Amino acid sequence: MSAPAAPPAPARTPHEPQHGPHPGILAIVATGLFLAGLLVPLALSGGSAFPSPFGDTAASLAHFREHAAPTRTGGALHFAASVPLAIYAATVSARLHRLGIRAPGATIALAGGLLASAALAASGLLAWVLGQSDVLEHPGVVPALHLLAFATGGAGHVVPLGLLVAGIAVPGLLAGLLPRRLAWAGLVLAALAELSVFSLLAEALSPLLPVARFGGLAWLIAAGFLLPRTRPRTRRA
């Protein structure tokens, strides 16, 4: 008597590519947390904005002492915003590679996004430290921490954010992955972001920071929704 035949092996289905989280949603979350880090402390402190490190030192120290909790809250929210920004950079870089981009743009986007995320995280943590009552008992260290929080959250964050935008916009333009107007707008914003490094040398150039920052975040949202998941064969050819 012969042994029963083994059941046939299940048919293999083609492996579906893993697209990861939606970059557009990640950009919205990162932008929302960043804006919350600005607006929530402003509301909690009765409209008293985060002081400039180039203003009166005594006034800045008085602000941090009076509004310690809002300062800590803003720092924590900005630290939280750095996480989806890093995931966005990794997701978009992987998608560009999957779309056949072998030029350095995808790697530049990843490097710029990770550096921008790290600078934003550092700025948030430094702001959180500025809201600690024990630290405020040592007025001599407050100006240095204040400047570091400004530098890392300003040019330290915006300049690599421009690299993230450029790393997406250049292949988006050359390979036709993004609408041309959006790609060119990204290149302009990236150039402004890189020029904002000179705000460290001339305070008059500080307006470049909010323009490049908020323009760049809005651009990342748009690119996250418009960047395709697959590349048509005709385009690849």
Rank of each mutant, 00 (worst) to 15 (best):
L114N: 00
L125A: 11
L126T: 08
L115W: 02
P51Q: 06
A58Q: 14
I108M: 05
L114F: 06
A103Y: 00
E66L: 13
V141G: 09
L110C: 10
P53L: 14
T71K: 12
L120D: 00
A155Y: 11
G140A: 15
P104L: 09
I168T: 10
I108L: 13
L130W: 06
G100F: 04
R95I: 04
V129L: 15
V165D: 01
A122E: 03
V92Q: 00
D134F: 14
S123P: 00
A80C: 11
G105N: 03
A127P: 00
A59M: 09
S45D: 02
A86Q: 06
L44F: 09
A49S: 10
T71C: 09
G167R: 10
S48Y: 06
L177W: 04
V165P: 00
A106F: 02
S82E: 07
T152K: 13
A68P: 03
T152A: 15
P51F: 08
G74N: 05
H78D: 10
V158I: 14
S123K: 07
A89C: 07
S60R: 12
P51G: 05
L147G: 15
R72P: 02
H146M: 12
S93T: 02
L61T: 14
G47W: 05
G75F: 07
I87M: 11
L145Y: 12
L99T: 01
Y88K: 10
P139H: 13
I168V: 15
A121Y: 08
P143S: 12
S52T: 06
T107W: 08
L99N: 01
T152Y: 13
G154T: 07
L161H: 01
G55A: 07
L136A: 14
L42D: 03
R95W: 02
A116D: 01
Q132F: 13
L126Y: 06
H157F: 15
A103Q: 02
G124N: 06
V159E: 07
T91A: 11
G140M: 13
T91K: 01
L61W: 09
S60N: 12
G112D: 00
A86I: 03
R181C: 01
P53K: 15
A86K: 07
A149N: 12
G167I: 06
V141Y: 09
V141S: 14
P139W: 14
A90V: 07
G105D: 01
L120T: 11
S93I: 02
A119H: 02
S82I: 10
A127W: 05
A81S: 14
V135M: 15
A94Q: 05
L96D: 02
L163M: 12
L120S: 10
P139Y: 13
A59L: 13
A49F: 04
G167C: 07
L173F: 06
G113K: 00
L77D: 08
R98K: 09
A169K: 05
L44K: 08
T152C: 15
S45H: 03
G46P: 00
A62N: 14
L182A: 10
S133C: 04
A43S: 09
G156F: 13
F54R: 12
R180I: 03
L44R: 10
G47S: 05
L85G: 03
L44H: 08
F64S: 10
L130S: 06
Q132S: 15
H78K: 14
A169D: 03
L182D: 00
A122C: 05
I168Q: 02
S52G: 01
T73S: 11
A109S: 05
G156E: 11
A121L: 08
V165L: 06
